[in-house]
Nucleic acid binder design. Structure first.
Lengths: 211, 211
DNA sequence: TCAGACATGTAAGTCGTTACATGATTCA
DNA sequence: TGAATCATGTAACGACTTACATGTCTGA
């Protein structure tokens, strides 16, 4: 049996929303998950094939009204079952490589000045990211009230629902999206806090006057 | 020319401390960088070969006094130069895949109850990790005062230095190590904060009474 | 009509893990 | 003596990116 990794279930997860093409999936990830996920065609198309081979999806070539022609993939009951199973499994917490920490560790006691300057740069990056995320948050938040997506943010265009249900779906989706942005903001802020602590300690080591 | 990735420079960075074997490097990473880096023999030995081929390191087979025999690798001037260059380059900030966020996004509006339970589990994991890191912090911190490593924490055993210089080296290394633990703690706390916010919002959505 | 977006795919290569193979040395 | 650990490696596989190839459709 083929190996089922995170990409496998990520794609299956999108198909559980509604039937999609590989192209749709790529767009969806790029537009709405760009901060914490990415995927390439080199993964998508072969994985879709394997999903069909595994009986987790079916394919309908060429279909689509009004739109250009796309190869749509639809999740099967078996696929849905496998997805539900994976969704409820605890998060895999294996190491997240952290280049900043690696450089700190490797160079920290050899060249403090350079390390400090590196941390300063890092803080700059994180500060910028935080600002960017705050803007995105503010642009998205109104949809929570209105139930209508702002301008270009129509990543989830659900099957047409009647007015009230449609608005509710938009609100739910918006809340999820805001939560993910919020996570990015908190992460950036934690890093900024760390940078400040680290710079301060490296500039004035607590053992400075010890022999 | 062979590709030079992070693993390449990670290994080179260790060699810049003192000559080491592949086995030493593996141990060092496992013991002191385990929270934010990992490396396997399948990477180490081939990379060491490539470092030698690139002129960044030399090898001395069999050497070692009192110890078992090991193949030691020593960084060259050229290697040191390349390392310095890499060390001063800004941190690569490309996406960090985040399984929690992926699952939130995929399942959030389909099955809120399951998502909440997933977040609760995640919070549990992060709380545990935070506790573990706090313990490690407390165990390591005394070395900042004493200039002597606690019990089994002798990852950096520098070339023998005279008393005062030796203590100073230990203090510097300890500070770096504490900073990296601190980063792990801040990261875990940011995640815990997010979990609380997320659960609260998912349980009581701000749009609950809207039509 | 033709540039640009839409849409689908493959090939080659890097990166990393796991499992396996091999042998030396230590010490209970 | 034999189990554990020290020590060095390779092979196979999976995950992911990049670059390429190919063709369609839309609108200025």
């Amino acid at each position: 049996m083929t190996k089922k990794g995170k990409t496998w279930f990520a794609i299956l997860g999108f198909l559980s929303w509604k039937p999609m093409s590989g192209y749709d999936i790529k767009n969806l990830v790029d537009i709405s998950l760009s901060y914490f996920w990415s995927i390439s065609y080199g993964q998508i198309y072969p994985t879709l094939k394997r999903l069909v081979a595994a009986g987790y999806a079916t394919t309908e070539a060429g279909r689509s009204i009004g739109d250009r022609k796309r190869n749509l993939f639809r999740i099967t009951n078996e696929g849905q079952k496998a997805l539900d199973d994976w969704m409820s499994k605890p998060i895999d917490l294996s190491i997240q490589r952290d280049e900043m920490q690696l450089k700190l560790f490797l160079g920290g006691q050899r060249d403090t000045a350079q390390t400090i300057s590196l941390i300063r740069d890092f803080k700059g990056q994180q500060t910028q990211r935080r600002a960017q995320l705050l803007i995105e948050y503010d642009e998205t938040a109104p949809a929570l009230e209105s139930g209508e997506f702002a301008d270009d943010i129509q990543w989830l265009e659900p099957e047409r629902l009647s007015g009230a249900r449609q608005k509710q779906a938009v609100r739910e989706q918006t809340l999820i999206f805001l939560l993910s942005i919020r996570q990015g903001i908190l992460k950036a802020e934690a890093r900024i806090t760390w940078c400040d602590e680290a710079i301060s300690l490296l500039e004035n080591p607590p053992y400075a006057n010890k022999s």
